[in-house]
Amino acid sequence: MELVDYLTIGAIIIGPIASVQIQKYLERRKETRNEKVRIFRVLMGTRGSSLSKSHVEALNQIDLVFEDKKYQSVRLAWGEYLDNLNQPFNDNNFSIWVNKNEDLLANLLYEMGLALGFNYDKVTIKRKSYTPVGHSNIELENQSIRKGILELLQSERTLPMQLILSQEELDNQKELRDLMLKYYENELKKEN
């Protein structure tokens, strides 16, 4: 056998194996990209409702999915945003904190978009999302309800109550009270 024969046999054996390995590599690469795009889409779709469960879950997957060195700008933007999210706030600095979060989220989405080949500017990311006022109202009401219930359970607040009785019911209550008082007065006299 000549060298050409050995090369032909080698190609016949190695060709299908290499083809399968290349196909697997391309599938993994496509799957990884699809996961990155999915996270980007979830974050873009929920950027107006950052308290939603899907938004938070997508944020928490950034370090896992954007782990390659070429996504360092995404991880840095996520680190800045996460740092601000974890900053304490109060009534005095709440609006400043929220505005900074919006800016940092827009920067994160901008960096993700660039890394994935999408061309969105930061203004578009920040300003072109729709969040119904009703969703904000529902969230504020739910928060207020939860806070009120906690205050009740922790005895920090009382539950106001008002009895509504008709005049006839009030008269019956008064008559019953008078009869009870009279009965107990008589019982006390008997004991003495």
Rank of each mutant, 00 (worst) to 15 (best):
Pro16Arg: 12
Pro16Cys: 06
Ile17Lys: 11
Ser19Ile: 05
Val20Cys: 06
Gln21Tyr: 14
Gln23Asn: 11
Lys24Ala: 05
Tyr25Val: 04
Leu26Lys: 15
Leu26Gln: 15
Leu26Pro: 01
Glu27Ser: 04
Lys30Gly: 00
Glu31Tyr: 10
Asn34Tyr: 09
Asn34Thr: 06
Glu35Met: 15
Val37Gln: 08
Arg41Asn: 14
Val42Phe: 12
Gly45Thr: 03
Thr46Ile: 00
Ser49Ile: 07
Ser49Cys: 08
Ser49Glu: 02
Ser49Leu: 08
Ser50Met: 05
Lys53Asn: 02
Lys53Met: 00
His55Pro: 00
Ala58Lys: 01
Leu59Asp: 00
Asp63Lys: 11
Leu64Cys: 05
Leu64Val: 03
Leu64Glu: 09
Leu64Arg: 13
Val65Ala: 12
Val65Glu: 09
Val65His: 10
Lys69Asn: 06
Lys69Arg: 12
Lys70Gly: 01
Tyr71Ile: 12
Gln72Lys: 14
Ser73Cys: 11
Leu76Gln: 12
Leu76Asp: 12
Ala77Thr: 02
Ala77Lys: 12
Gly79Glu: 01
Tyr81Leu: 14
Leu82Trp: 09
Asp83Met: 10
Asn84Pro: 00
Phe89Cys: 08
Asn90Val: 07
Asn92Pro: 00
Asn92Arg: 15
Asn93Cys: 10
Asn93Tyr: 11
Asn93Thr: 09
Phe94Pro: 00
Val98Thr: 06
Val98Tyr: 07
Asn101Met: 07
Asn101Phe: 01
Asp103Tyr: 08
Asp103Leu: 06
Leu104Gln: 11
Ala106Gly: 15
Ala106Cys: 10
Asn107Phe: 03
Leu108Glu: 01
Tyr110Arg: 09
Tyr110Asn: 12
Met112Glu: 03
Met112Lys: 03
Gly113Ile: 01
Gly117Ser: 04
Tyr120Cys: 10
Val123Phe: 13
Thr124Glu: 08
Ile125Cys: 09
Ile125Lys: 12
Arg127Ile: 02
Lys128Cys: 11
Ser129Phe: 05
Ser129Ile: 05
Pro132Gly: 10
Pro132Thr: 14
Asn137Glu: 02
Asn137Ile: 09
Ile138Asp: 07
Ile138Lys: 15
Asn142Val: 05
Ser144Leu: 07
Ile145Gly: 08
Arg146Met: 09
Lys147Glu: 01
Lys147Pro: 00
Gly148Phe: 07
Ile149Leu: 15
Glu156Lys: 15
Arg157Glu: 03
Thr158Val: 15
Thr158Ile: 08
